[in-house]
Design a protein around this nucleic acid. Sequence first.
DNA 1: TAGTGGTCTAGACCACTCA
DNA 2: GAGTGGTCTAGACCACTAT
Lengths: 228, 228
Amino acid sequence: MTSHQQLRHEFVARIQSGEWPLGARIPDEITLAAEYGCARATVNRALRGLADDGLVVRKRKGGTRVSAAPARRAHVTIAVLREQVEAQQQTYRHKTLRRRTRVPSVAVRDKLGLDSAQKAVFLETHHFADEQPFALERRWVNPVAVPEIYDAPFDEISANEWLVRTVPFTNASLAFSAKNADADIADGLDIEIGAAVFVMDRTTWLGDKFVTTMTLYYPPGYELTSQL
Amino acid sequence: MTSHQQLRHEFVARIQSGEWPLGARIPDEITLAAEYGCARATVNRALRGLADDGLVVRKRKGGTRVSAAPARRAHVTIAVLREQVEAQQQTYRHKTLRRRTRVPSVAVRDKLGLDSAQKAVFLETHHFADEQPFALERRWVNPVAVPEIYDAPFDEISANEWLVRTVPFTNASLAFSAKNADADIADGLDIEIGAAVFVMDRTTWLGDKFVTTMTLYYPPGYELTSQL
DNA sequence: TAGTGGTCTAGACCACTCA
DNA sequence: GAGTGGTCTAGACCACTAT
């Protein structure tokens, strides 16, 4: 069989073997299609896949080259916390500690593009894996975008999961960083003050309408992993 | 014009508007192709793109649904440190502090799949942005995979960049975490001991042959960002 | 200006999986 | 068994860009 995936592997093998060195130009699609006895579209799809991963660079007229300008793309899968925990064969539990409606700070307001007097819903949730603290979540939700927020049953389902199952979003920005735990975070995660926590900020929009922003704090030892 | 990208936007708009709610099944490819007056392959490509990003879930016979099982994928671009710095309009400089050939620790050896007596090259590099510490790099290189390592001019070009421009790789694993700076790291980054540093571990292979593994430490304030 | 990738079409067959 | 997505083909035209 000649499939685009097999072609992909063929091409990767030719890069591995050194036949196509870094920076070198590889044959054009028509030539490769003839060589492998398949349609040009199939070659195109295989090479497009490699280009998506940053392994080759393609230019009209310029041909396809093995990437020497190395901006490779990694794919990070962002799952719901419950699934992260259960994937480790652990038991998930969550507890919603705070749930308030108020006007957020200026910093948050700017980030979210809210009007100055507009209220938003603040939630603080603790997530546990086998009864050990797994992550601490602080979240702002825009009630204009999500009016159902007031009726959501956060005893049964975490805000994290409820939102993602209820409200679609089209854009999201993510940021990862490190931070020394302050007293609140240390208390929530049952770690020492000053310990290095892994921080994930995530903000989502539906079109240009702000939906929610959250910060997740993971205790020391947590790793976010990725392939390619 | 009817392009797969425009179709994609159309479909996203229909999700945004609520016409296609979370979890709902959307029309099949043939129907959509008729509706938009284009070929089925074009619809297929648009929907495949949305599925790649996790926005919809597709199953043969089961049709296509707006994703309610939220494992969305984010794309992180890993650039060379010099480019990261220069993208901020800052001046890049690096300094290779250590360059030794020796047998690595058992922990490193296991990670890399090296034989027990096999030597590897260790490098420690400091990276600066406008003469401020930007990141600290510790790296092991497999000289079997990269014999040219002994001749590399690390005064002119950092190991980070030299490797990526010289040696192809086909697989990489990435891990992000947070860590309290020990004395060495604190000294190298000019921060206080115990400050939270952002850590990126990266290991690459060419086929099944280990190429290099490195750990990068970023000082407090650093953020890794991503879209979608 | 000519070469190369980007994309679309119409049709076909296959592979999964739901009912 | 039948419906739906997965993929391939052969051909076509277009858009960029290196020379």
